[in-house]
Design a protein around this nucleic acid. Structure first.
Lengths: 191, 191
DNA sequence: CCTACCGATCGGTAGG
DNA sequence: CCTACCGATCGGTAGG
Protein backbone atom coordinates (compact mmCIF):
# COMPACT_ATOMS: atom_id res chain seq x y z
CA UNK A 1 0.00 0.00 0.00
CA UNK A 2 1.70 3.17 -1.19
CA UNK A 3 0.99 6.25 0.87
CA UNK A 4 -0.32 9.14 -1.17
CA UNK A 5 2.36 11.79 -1.51
CA UNK A 6 1.68 15.44 -0.95
CA UNK A 7 2.63 17.89 -3.69
CA UNK A 8 5.44 19.10 -1.47
CA UNK A 9 6.80 15.56 -1.21
CA UNK A 10 6.61 15.15 -4.96
CA UNK A 11 8.45 18.43 -5.49
CA UNK A 12 11.21 17.39 -3.10
CA UNK A 13 11.50 13.97 -4.69
CA UNK A 14 11.83 15.44 -8.19
CA UNK A 15 14.25 18.06 -6.91
CA UNK A 16 16.49 15.34 -5.48
CA UNK A 17 16.67 13.69 -8.91
CA UNK A 18 17.66 16.91 -10.70
CA UNK A 19 20.01 18.12 -7.95
CA UNK A 20 21.82 14.78 -8.11
CA UNK A 21 22.25 15.09 -11.87
CA UNK A 22 23.34 18.72 -12.19
CA UNK A 23 23.91 19.98 -8.66
CA UNK A 24 21.74 22.31 -6.58
CA UNK A 25 23.23 25.60 -7.75
CA UNK A 26 22.98 24.70 -11.42
CA UNK A 27 19.31 23.73 -11.18
CA UNK A 28 16.68 26.43 -11.75
CA UNK A 29 13.25 26.53 -10.21
CA UNK A 30 11.79 26.77 -13.72
CA UNK A 31 13.41 23.46 -14.61
CA UNK A 32 12.11 21.85 -11.45
CA UNK A 33 8.64 23.26 -12.11
CA UNK A 34 8.62 21.74 -15.58
CA UNK A 35 9.48 18.28 -14.20
CA UNK A 36 6.72 18.55 -11.64
CA UNK A 37 4.28 19.85 -14.26
CA UNK A 38 3.51 23.37 -13.19
CA UNK A 39 4.75 26.94 -13.56
CA UNK A 40 7.70 28.09 -11.45
CA UNK A 41 5.57 30.56 -9.52
CA UNK A 42 3.20 27.77 -8.51
CA UNK A 43 5.92 25.87 -6.71
CA UNK A 44 5.81 28.54 -4.04
CA UNK A 45 2.34 27.47 -2.97
CA UNK A 46 3.98 24.30 -1.66
CA UNK A 47 7.46 25.33 -0.61
CA UNK A 48 8.84 28.53 0.83
CA UNK A 49 12.05 28.75 -1.16
CA UNK A 50 14.68 26.84 -3.10
CA UNK A 51 16.73 26.80 0.08
CA UNK A 52 13.99 25.01 1.93
CA UNK A 53 14.05 22.07 -0.47
CA UNK A 54 17.75 21.55 0.09
CA UNK A 55 17.33 21.84 3.85
CA UNK A 56 14.58 19.25 3.92
CA UNK A 57 16.68 16.79 1.94
CA UNK A 58 19.91 17.29 3.88
CA UNK A 59 18.42 17.12 7.37
CA UNK A 60 16.10 14.24 6.56
CA UNK A 61 19.10 12.18 5.47
CA UNK A 62 21.31 13.32 8.34
CA UNK A 63 18.64 12.53 10.93
CA UNK A 64 18.05 9.08 9.46
CA UNK A 65 21.71 8.15 9.80
CA UNK A 66 21.88 9.47 13.34
CA UNK A 67 18.67 7.76 14.45
CA UNK A 68 19.86 4.36 13.22
CA UNK A 69 23.29 4.41 14.77
CA UNK A 70 21.91 4.35 18.32
CA UNK A 71 20.46 0.89 17.80
CA UNK A 72 23.85 -0.35 16.61
CA UNK A 73 25.64 1.15 19.61
CA UNK A 74 23.15 -0.32 22.06
CA UNK A 75 23.62 -3.96 21.08
CA UNK A 76 25.94 -6.20 23.07
CA UNK A 77 27.71 -7.37 19.94
CA UNK A 78 31.43 -7.37 19.23
CA UNK A 79 32.90 -4.28 17.61
CA UNK A 80 33.46 -6.28 14.45
CA UNK A 81 29.78 -7.09 14.33
CA UNK A 82 28.89 -3.46 15.00
CA UNK A 83 31.06 -2.50 12.07
CA UNK A 84 29.20 -5.01 9.91
CA UNK A 85 25.90 -3.53 11.04
CA UNK A 86 27.11 -0.06 10.21
CA UNK A 87 28.13 -1.07 6.70
CA UNK A 88 24.75 -2.69 6.24
CA UNK A 89 23.02 0.45 7.51
CA UNK A 90 24.80 2.63 4.97
CA UNK A 91 24.13 0.27 2.09
CA UNK A 92 20.46 0.03 2.91
CA UNK A 93 20.03 3.76 3.40
CA UNK A 94 21.63 4.42 0.05
CA UNK A 95 19.59 1.80 -1.78
CA UNK A 96 16.38 3.07 -0.17
CA UNK A 97 17.02 6.71 -1.08
CA UNK A 98 19.93 7.10 -3.49
CA UNK A 99 18.94 10.55 -4.76
CA UNK A 100 18.47 12.21 -1.41
CA UNK A 101 21.57 10.63 0.11
CA UNK A 102 23.55 11.81 -2.88
CA UNK A 103 22.25 15.38 -2.63
CA UNK A 104 22.93 15.55 1.11
CA UNK A 105 26.48 14.33 0.58
CA UNK A 106 27.28 16.57 -2.37
CA UNK A 107 25.21 19.73 -2.02
CA UNK A 108 25.20 20.51 1.71
CA UNK A 109 27.78 23.20 0.92
CA UNK A 110 24.96 25.21 -0.64
CA UNK A 111 22.97 25.41 2.57
CA UNK A 112 22.63 28.87 4.14
CA UNK A 113 25.40 29.75 6.55
CA UNK A 114 23.49 28.87 9.73
CA UNK A 115 22.02 25.66 8.35
CA UNK A 116 25.40 24.66 7.01
CA UNK A 117 26.92 25.01 10.46
CA UNK A 118 24.12 22.91 11.92
CA UNK A 119 24.61 20.25 9.27
CA UNK A 120 28.34 20.11 9.94
CA UNK A 121 27.71 19.78 13.66
CA UNK A 122 25.34 16.85 13.14
CA UNK A 123 27.77 15.17 10.78
CA UNK A 124 30.69 15.63 13.15
CA UNK A 125 28.63 14.10 15.95
CA UNK A 126 27.89 11.11 13.76
CA UNK A 127 31.53 10.69 12.81
CA UNK A 128 32.54 10.96 16.45
CA UNK A 129 30.32 8.03 17.38
CA UNK A 130 31.84 5.89 14.65
CA UNK A 131 35.31 6.98 15.73
CA UNK A 132 34.47 5.74 19.23
CA UNK A 133 33.37 2.41 17.80
CA UNK A 134 36.69 2.13 15.99
CA UNK A 135 38.66 3.11 19.10
CA UNK A 136 36.80 0.51 21.15
CA UNK A 137 37.60 -2.11 18.53
CA UNK A 138 41.29 -1.23 18.58
CA UNK A 139 41.45 -1.26 22.38
CA UNK A 140 39.65 -4.61 22.53
CA UNK A 141 42.26 -6.00 20.17
CA UNK A 142 39.63 -6.73 17.53
CA UNK A 143 40.88 -4.14 15.06
CA UNK A 144 44.37 -3.42 13.82
CA UNK A 145 46.20 -0.51 15.40
CA UNK A 146 45.28 2.11 12.81
CA UNK A 147 45.07 5.88 12.95
CA UNK A 148 41.44 6.40 13.93
CA UNK A 149 40.79 9.29 11.53
CA UNK A 150 42.23 7.38 8.60
CA UNK A 151 40.15 4.32 9.44
CA UNK A 152 37.01 6.39 9.98
CA UNK A 153 37.12 8.40 6.78
CA UNK A 154 38.30 5.50 4.65
CA UNK A 155 35.31 3.51 5.88
CA UNK A 156 32.74 6.24 5.27
CA UNK A 157 34.29 7.29 1.98
CA UNK A 158 34.50 3.75 0.66
CA UNK A 159 30.72 3.43 0.81
CA UNK A 160 29.98 6.61 -1.09
CA UNK A 161 30.28 5.32 -4.65
CA UNK A 162 27.19 3.18 -4.15
CA UNK A 163 24.81 6.12 -4.25
CA UNK A 164 26.15 6.99 -7.71
CA UNK A 165 26.37 3.47 -9.08
CA UNK A 166 23.69 1.23 -7.71
CA UNK A 167 20.37 0.86 -9.48
CA UNK A 168 17.85 -1.97 -9.44
CA UNK A 169 18.97 -3.20 -12.87
CA UNK A 170 22.52 -4.05 -11.74
CA UNK A 171 23.74 -7.62 -12.12
CA UNK A 172 24.47 -7.75 -8.40
CA UNK A 173 21.93 -7.99 -5.60
CA UNK A 174 22.01 -5.79 -2.51
CA UNK A 175 22.97 -8.91 -0.51
CA UNK A 176 25.94 -9.67 -2.76
CA UNK A 177 26.94 -6.02 -2.61
CA UNK A 178 26.87 -6.03 1.18
CA UNK A 179 28.81 -9.28 1.26
CA UNK A 180 31.63 -8.11 -0.98
CA UNK A 181 31.84 -4.79 0.83
CA UNK A 182 32.12 -6.54 4.17
CA UNK A 183 34.80 -8.86 2.88
CA UNK A 184 36.80 -5.90 1.64
CA UNK A 185 36.36 -3.69 4.67
CA UNK A 186 36.23 -6.14 7.57
CA UNK A 187 39.45 -7.79 6.44
CA UNK A 188 41.02 -4.36 6.33
CA UNK A 189 40.03 -3.63 9.91
CA UNK A 190 40.30 -7.04 11.56
CA UNK A 191 43.46 -7.93 13.41
CA UNK B 1 63.30 27.50 -7.44
CA UNK B 2 59.66 28.37 -7.97
CA UNK B 3 58.66 28.92 -11.57
CA UNK B 4 56.95 32.23 -12.13
CA UNK B 5 53.25 31.72 -12.68
CA UNK B 6 51.37 33.39 -15.49
CA UNK B 7 48.26 35.38 -14.62
CA UNK B 8 46.20 32.63 -16.20
CA UNK B 9 47.77 30.06 -13.90
CA UNK B 10 47.10 32.27 -10.89
CA UNK B 11 43.47 32.68 -11.93
CA UNK B 12 43.02 28.93 -12.30
CA UNK B 13 44.72 28.24 -8.99
CA UNK B 14 42.48 30.72 -7.16
CA UNK B 15 39.44 29.39 -8.99
CA UNK B 16 40.22 25.86 -7.79
CA UNK B 17 40.23 27.08 -4.19
CA UNK B 18 36.85 28.81 -4.47
CA UNK B 19 35.24 26.07 -6.58
CA UNK B 20 36.27 23.53 -3.97
CA UNK B 21 34.70 25.60 -1.21
CA UNK B 22 31.37 26.54 -2.80
CA UNK B 23 31.15 24.60 -6.04
CA UNK B 24 31.62 25.81 -9.62
CA UNK B 25 28.02 26.87 -10.28
CA UNK B 26 27.74 28.86 -7.04
CA UNK B 27 30.93 30.83 -7.72
CA UNK B 28 30.68 34.10 -9.64
CA UNK B 29 33.34 35.59 -11.85
CA UNK B 30 33.14 38.76 -9.77
CA UNK B 31 34.07 36.81 -6.67
CA UNK B 32 36.95 35.15 -8.45
CA UNK B 33 38.12 38.51 -9.78
CA UNK B 34 38.18 39.95 -6.30
CA UNK B 35 40.37 37.11 -5.02
CA UNK B 36 42.76 37.60 -7.90
CA UNK B 37 42.75 41.35 -7.40
CA UNK B 38 41.18 42.72 -10.56
CA UNK B 39 37.78 43.58 -12.02
CA UNK B 40 35.64 40.76 -13.42
CA UNK B 41 35.92 42.11 -16.96
CA UNK B 42 39.71 41.98 -16.75
CA UNK B 43 39.72 38.24 -16.19
CA UNK B 44 38.73 37.85 -19.80
CA UNK B 45 42.09 39.15 -20.96
CA UNK B 46 43.55 35.90 -19.59
CA UNK B 47 40.81 33.33 -19.99
CA UNK B 48 38.11 32.84 -22.58
CA UNK B 49 35.24 31.94 -20.29
CA UNK B 50 34.23 30.50 -16.94
CA UNK B 51 33.81 27.16 -18.73
CA UNK B 52 37.40 27.22 -19.84
CA UNK B 53 38.68 27.38 -16.25
CA UNK B 54 36.73 24.28 -15.30
CA UNK B 55 37.89 22.46 -18.41
CA UNK B 56 41.54 23.21 -17.72
CA UNK B 57 41.24 21.92 -14.16
CA UNK B 58 39.30 18.76 -15.00
CA UNK B 59 41.42 17.65 -17.94
CA UNK B 60 44.70 18.51 -16.29
CA UNK B 61 43.81 16.23 -13.38
CA UNK B 62 42.38 13.49 -15.59
CA UNK B 63 45.44 13.46 -17.81
CA UNK B 64 47.78 13.29 -14.84
CA UNK B 65 46.08 10.19 -13.49
CA UNK B 66 46.10 8.52 -16.89
CA UNK B 67 49.72 9.35 -17.63
CA UNK B 68 50.90 7.83 -14.34
CA UNK B 69 49.02 4.58 -14.55
CA UNK B 70 51.01 3.39 -17.57
CA UNK B 71 54.20 3.26 -15.55
CA UNK B 72 52.44 1.11 -12.96
CA UNK B 73 51.09 -1.28 -15.56
CA UNK B 74 54.46 -1.62 -17.24
CA UNK B 75 56.36 -2.89 -14.19
CA UNK B 76 56.93 -6.60 -13.71
CA UNK B 77 55.66 -6.46 -10.16
CA UNK B 78 52.95 -8.58 -8.53
CA UNK B 79 49.40 -7.33 -8.73
CA UNK B 80 49.47 -6.69 -5.01
CA UNK B 81 52.45 -4.42 -5.50
CA UNK B 82 50.75 -2.68 -8.43
CA UNK B 83 47.79 -2.03 -6.16
CA UNK B 84 50.14 -0.53 -3.59
CA UNK B 85 51.66 1.68 -6.27
CA UNK B 86 48.21 2.80 -7.36
CA UNK B 87 47.21 3.77 -3.83
CA UNK B 88 50.45 5.68 -3.50
CA UNK B 89 49.82 7.42 -6.83
CA UNK B 90 46.41 8.62 -5.70
CA UNK B 91 47.63 9.80 -2.31
CA UNK B 92 50.49 11.74 -3.85
CA UNK B 93 48.38 13.30 -6.57
CA UNK B 94 45.88 14.47 -3.98
CA UNK B 95 48.52 15.86 -1.64
CA UNK B 96 50.24 17.64 -4.52
CA UNK B 97 47.06 19.26 -5.82
CA UNK B 98 44.15 18.86 -3.41
CA UNK B 99 42.09 21.75 -4.78
CA UNK B 100 42.22 20.79 -8.42
CA UNK B 101 41.68 17.08 -7.73
CA UNK B 102 38.68 17.98 -5.62
CA UNK B 103 37.17 20.23 -8.30
CA UNK B 104 37.67 17.62 -11.01
CA UNK B 105 35.97 14.97 -8.87
CA UNK B 106 33.05 17.10 -7.75
CA UNK B 107 32.37 19.64 -10.49
CA UNK B 108 32.93 17.75 -13.78
CA UNK B 109 29.12 17.58 -14.04
CA UNK B 110 29.19 21.29 -14.88
CA UNK B 111 31.33 20.82 -17.98
CA UNK B 112 29.65 21.58 -21.31
CA UNK B 113 27.87 18.62 -22.88
CA UNK B 114 30.67 17.66 -25.26
CA UNK B 115 33.47 18.15 -22.74
CA UNK B 116 31.49 16.21 -20.15
CA UNK B 117 31.23 13.26 -22.52
CA UNK B 118 34.95 13.43 -23.17
CA UNK B 119 35.67 13.56 -19.46
CA UNK B 120 33.47 10.54 -18.80
CA UNK B 121 35.21 8.63 -21.58
CA UNK B 122 38.64 9.34 -20.13
CA UNK B 123 37.50 8.37 -16.66
CA UNK B 124 35.92 5.15 -17.88
CA UNK B 125 39.14 4.27 -19.66
CA UNK B 126 41.06 4.82 -16.46
CA UNK B 127 38.64 2.71 -14.46
CA UNK B 128 38.83 -0.04 -17.06
CA UNK B 129 42.59 -0.30 -16.63
CA UNK B 130 42.27 -0.62 -12.88
CA UNK B 131 39.51 -3.18 -13.34
CA UNK B 132 41.94 -5.19 -15.47
CA UNK B 133 44.54 -4.97 -12.74
CA UNK B 134 41.99 -6.31 -10.24
CA UNK B 135 40.92 -9.10 -12.61
CA UNK B 136 44.53 -10.13 -13.13
CA UNK B 137 45.03 -10.21 -9.37
CA UNK B 138 41.99 -12.41 -8.86
CA UNK B 139 43.00 -14.80 -11.67
CA UNK B 140 46.54 -15.02 -10.31
CA UNK B 141 45.09 -16.02 -6.94
CA UNK B 142 46.58 -12.94 -5.29
CA UNK B 143 43.23 -11.25 -4.61
CA UNK B 144 40.06 -12.60 -3.10
CA UNK B 145 37.28 -13.59 -5.49
CA UNK B 146 35.37 -10.32 -5.38
CA UNK B 147 32.95 -8.70 -7.77
CA UNK B 148 35.31 -6.55 -9.87
CA UNK B 149 33.06 -3.48 -9.98
CA UNK B 150 32.55 -3.52 -6.24
CA UNK B 151 36.28 -3.86 -5.63
CA UNK B 152 37.12 -1.18 -8.19
CA UNK B 153 34.74 1.49 -6.95
CA UNK B 154 35.33 0.74 -3.28
CA UNK B 155 39.04 1.22 -3.88
CA UNK B 156 38.70 4.49 -5.78
CA UNK B 157 36.01 5.83 -3.50
CA UNK B 158 37.92 4.99 -0.33
CA UNK B 159 40.70 7.36 -1.38
CA UNK B 160 38.46 10.33 -2.03
CA UNK B 161 38.13 11.71 1.49
CA UNK B 162 41.81 12.63 1.52
CA UNK B 163 41.35 15.57 -0.85
CA UNK B 164 38.87 17.06 1.61
CA UNK B 165 40.73 16.26 4.81
CA UNK B 166 44.45 16.35 4.34
CA UNK B 167 46.42 19.53 4.91
CA UNK B 168 50.07 20.04 5.84
CA UNK B 169 49.20 20.80 9.47
CA UNK B 170 47.70 17.35 10.17
CA UNK B 171 49.22 15.23 12.91
CA UNK B 172 49.90 12.48 10.43
CA UNK B 173 52.56 12.45 7.74
CA UNK B 174 51.91 11.46 4.12
CA UNK B 175 53.96 8.34 4.77
CA UNK B 176 51.87 7.30 7.75
CA UNK B 177 48.74 8.05 5.75
CA UNK B 178 49.89 5.83 2.88
CA UNK B 179 50.84 3.11 5.33
CA UNK B 180 47.50 2.97 7.12
CA UNK B 181 45.61 3.15 3.85
CA UNK B 182 47.59 0.25 2.45
CA UNK B 183 47.02 -1.80 5.59
CA UNK B 184 43.29 -1.20 5.33
CA UNK B 185 42.95 -1.77 1.62
CA UNK B 186 45.55 -4.42 0.88
CA UNK B 187 44.19 -6.66 3.63
CA UNK B 188 40.76 -6.25 2.10
CA UNK B 189 41.97 -7.38 -1.29
CA UNK B 190 44.62 -9.96 -0.42
CA UNK B 191 43.66 -13.63 -0.34
C1' DC C 1 -2.32 27.06 -9.98
C1' DC C 2 -1.53 30.86 -13.62
C1' DT C 3 -0.21 35.56 -15.76
C1' DA C 4 2.52 39.23 -15.29
C1' DC C 5 6.26 41.03 -13.52
C1' DC C 6 10.27 42.71 -10.30
C1' DG C 7 15.02 43.65 -8.67
C1' DA C 8 19.28 41.41 -8.54
C1' DT C 9 22.85 39.11 -10.44
C1' DC C 10 24.92 36.48 -13.86
C1' DG C 11 28.65 35.72 -17.78
C1' DG C 12 30.52 38.35 -20.98
C1' DT C 13 31.67 42.47 -24.60
C1' DA C 14 33.05 47.17 -26.42
C1' DG C 15 36.13 50.51 -26.33
C1' DG C 16 39.73 52.72 -24.55
C1' DC D 1 43.47 46.31 -16.78
C1' DC D 2 39.28 49.54 -16.12
C1' DT D 3 34.56 51.87 -16.95
C1' DA D 4 30.37 51.26 -18.73
C1' DC D 5 27.14 48.40 -20.06
C1' DC D 6 24.24 44.42 -22.31
C1' DG D 7 20.90 40.58 -22.71
C1' DA D 8 19.61 36.64 -20.25
C1' DT D 9 18.26 34.36 -16.42
C1' DC D 10 17.69 33.90 -11.70
C1' DG D 11 14.58 33.34 -7.22
C1' DG D 12 10.59 35.07 -5.85
C1' DT D 13 5.97 38.18 -5.27
C1' DA D 14 1.30 40.30 -6.31
C1' DG D 15 -3.00 39.52 -7.51
C1' DG D 16 -6.41 36.91 -9.07
Amino acid sequence: MVKKQSKKEIIIQEAAIIFKQKGYAATSMRELAEKVGMEAASLYNHIRSKDEILEEICFKVANQYVSHISSIEDTKESNIQKLRDLIQLHVRMIIADPNEVSVANNDWKNLSETKKELYKTIRKGYEKRIANLIKAGIEAGEFKDLNVSVALFTLLSSLRWIELWYKPGRDISPEQLENDLMTLLINGFQK
